[in-house]
Design a protein around this nucleic acid. Structure first.
Lengths: 153, 153
DNA sequence: TGTGAAAACCCACAGGT
DNA sequence: ACCTGTGGGTTTTCACA
C-alpha cells in the first residue's frame, strides 16, 4: 500500500471511476505536466496496483435479468475434490464469481442468467451434474442495493 | 439484446477485456475503418449497453486482504425498514456490494477489509449498530476461484 | 521527479459512395 | 452503413533542470 503518495492516490481514484480519462485531463486536475502522469500510471501498472482496464456492460440490456447466489456443500474437502469443483465451475460462463468460504457452506457462487427458465436449465444440465456436490441452496437477487468495484483511497 | 449484430458483439467482447483499446486497433481487428467503429461505440453507449469504463485495482496490493460475505436478517420487511438499511449500508465504504435476496436471509453483503482486526472494528462500530438487524452471519473468503465481470456474447 | 517541446500516433468529423 | 482524408488533439519520448 505504501510506495504510493498522495498524487498516486488521487490518480487511482480518478482512474477507478473512468479508465478512459485522458492523461492531459489528469495532468490538469493534478497540476502536473503529462510526462509524470504517464510515468506514474506505467509504474502503477508495473507494480501491480492497476490490474486492468475494463468496460462494464448493463446485464439487463443484454437480457440477463436474473442473478442468483448459490451456496454449495461438497462431500469432502481434500485438495483433489476442491480443485475439481473449481475447475468445473470455471468452465461455466453463467458463473461470474466463485469463492471458497468458511462456515456452513463450502462455496459461494454468483450466477448470471437470462431468466428463471435459463437458470433451471443451468442447474439441471450444467451445475448439479458436477461431482461431489452434496447440497446446494439458491438465493435469488430481488434488488441490487449497492455495487461498486472502487476502493476509496 | 437484439439490435446488436455480430460486429457489435465482437466489439463488446473486446471492450469488456480492455477498455483502453484504441479505435484504430478495433478497426484493424474487425476489418473496418475507424469511422463505423467510433459510431457503433457511441451508439452502444447511448443505447445503454455500455455502462462505464473502469480501472480495476488489486485489493491485495492496497492491503485489503480480507473479503467477507455477510448474510443479514431484518426485523421487518416494510419499505421503510428495507430502505433505511440500504441507505445506511451504502454509506459504508467497506461494503462493496449489497443485494436484497430471497430465502433464509434478507440481504447479502460483500465486504472488503484490510484484515480481521479491521473487520472486527467494522462490525462493532459501523455495521452492527444499524437498526433493525436481528441476526447476521459472516462467511470469510478463503480463496477466490473465479471472478469475472465479462458477459460472453 | 519534474518541465517543455517535438515526433508519432490517434480521434472525430466532413464529404462522398 | 461504410470509406478516405484531414485538422486538431493526445501520447510518448527526449533533452534538460
Amino acid at each position: 500500500m505504501r510506495n504510493i503518495d498522495e498524487i498516486d492516490r488521487k490518480l487511482l481514484n480518478i482512474l477507478q471511476d473512468n479508465s478512459r480519462v485522458t492523461i492531459r485531463e489528469l495532468s490538469e486536475r493534478l497540476h502536473l505536466s503529462t510526462t509524470p502522469i504517464h510515468e506514474r500510471i506505467k509504474k502503477l501498472e508495473k507494480n501491480g496496483y492497476i490490474k486492468r482496464y475494463i468496460t462494464l456492460l448493463d446485464p439487463k440490456a443484454l437480457g440477463k435479468k436474473l442473478t442468483v447466489f448459490i451456496s454449495v456443500s461438497l462431500s469432502s474437502h481434500t485438495k483433489e475434490v476442491v480443485d475439481a469443483f473449481e475447475h468445473e465451475v470455471k468452465k461455466l460462463p453463467e458463473v461470474m464469481e466463485c469463492y471458497y468460504v468458511s462456515g456452513n457452506w463450502d462455496f459461494l457462487l454468483k450466477v448470471q442468467c437470462n431468466d428463471m427458465e435459463d437458470y433451471h436449465n443451468f442447474v439441471i444440465h450444467k451445475f448439479s451434474v458436477i461431482k461431489n456436490i452434496t447440497q446446494f441452496y439458491s438465493s435469488f437477487v430481488m434488488s441490487e442495493s449497492k455495487q461498486t468495484y472502487k476502493y476509496e483511497l
